[in-house]
């Protein structure tokens, strides 16, 4: 980087002096007003503020890498600003929704609405809005991340997809995006669960697997989750005592060693999850 290779004679700015204020961040000494003015006029101030807000929202493990890719995206979106190609808008939206983990709800919601805006901004003449086609494409791209089997993805998409020409309201958009992210996490968790069950051998006992799946189904099943107490109930059903009991029983009952492979386990587990996803109308 050429700019860094210049030797600096000016003293380094004081570090850790609260949130960045361009006046203070500037090199001390010469004409602080004009420097502040320059930063304001060139849009540096607002750009830095926005970047720091994004960092604070997402709290990334490695903020430097986060900032590098954040600014890179800004460059790309600036360069593509005239064309507004669909693929670029899609990539940008994808980047937005991945910025923060969905458990960080406020940040996630903000980013989803940024993605929604980004996708709905089209040519000046057309009305803004997200259609079903680009919405489905975004969902597919999100799901491509994980090790999710193809048929699982398509069965989820069947439930939350809209028709290609349909306008997708923001609520549906958010719901769909969130469902995909939760699915990804669910699959990852189910995968580690299988790691425990197979004990490193690569194959797990079928009965034990079925007992685990049964308990999971039992916990997820029955009534709707709008009542908060249901969360506690589900949690207690998956508690160590309940689950261990079921697994123990299954181990005692087993006769001939039949096994269940990872794929089958994952498919069955995700089927339980997808059954609980409410289809959109």
């Amino acid at each position: 980087m050429a700019t860094c290779e210049k030797r600096r004679s000016a003293p380094a700015p004081a570090t850790g002096s609260g949130l960045v204020e361009p006046v203070r961040a500037g090199v001390g000494g010469r004409e602080p007003e004009s420097e502040a003015e320059f930063l304001l006029q060139a849009g540096v101030t607002s750009m830095v503020r926005e970047a720091l807000l994004k960092v604070l929202e997402a709290r990334p493990e490695e903020p430097v890498s986060f900032l590098a890719s954040y600014f890179e995206k800004l460059v790309l979106s600036g360069a593509a600003g005239d064309r507004h190609g669909q693929q670029q808008r899609l990539a940008r939206a994808l980047w937005y929704v991945r910025l923060a983990h969905h458990s960080h709800r406020t940040a996630f919601n903000n980013n989803v609405s940024m993605a929604y805006e980004c996708l709905s901004a089209r040519g000046r003449r057309k009305k803004p809005g997200v259609n079903g086609k680009i919405y489905s494409e975004l969902l597919k791209k999100i799901c491509q991340d994980g090790e999710v089997p193809e048929e699982v993805v398509s069965s989820l998409l069947r439930k939350i997809q809209c028709r290609d020409h349909e306008a997708v309201p923001f609520d549906v958009f958010r719901y769909g995006v969130l469902s995909c992210f939760v699915l990804l996490e669910f699959v990852a968790k189910a995968d580690t669960l299988y790691d425990v069950l197979d004990d490193g051998s690569g194959v797990a006992d079928k009965r034990v697997c079925q007992a685990v799946l049964g308990t999971l189904e039992d916990a997820l099943g029955a009534s709707d989750f709008s009542v908060p107490i249901r969360y506690l109930e589900a949690g207690s059903k998956l508690g160590p005592d309940c689950l261990a009991l079921a697994m123990d029983k299954a181990l005692l009952e087993r006769k001939i060693c039949s096994s269940m492979n990872r794929e089958e386990f994952l498919t069955k587990a995700t089927a339980l999850f997808i059954a609980k996803v409410k289809p959109i109308d």
Partner: peptide, 9 residues
């Protein structure tokens, strides 16, 4: 902030 301030300067 160390890096952000340095970047700005």
């Amino acid at each position: 902030l160390t890096y952000m301030e340095d970047a700005v300067s």
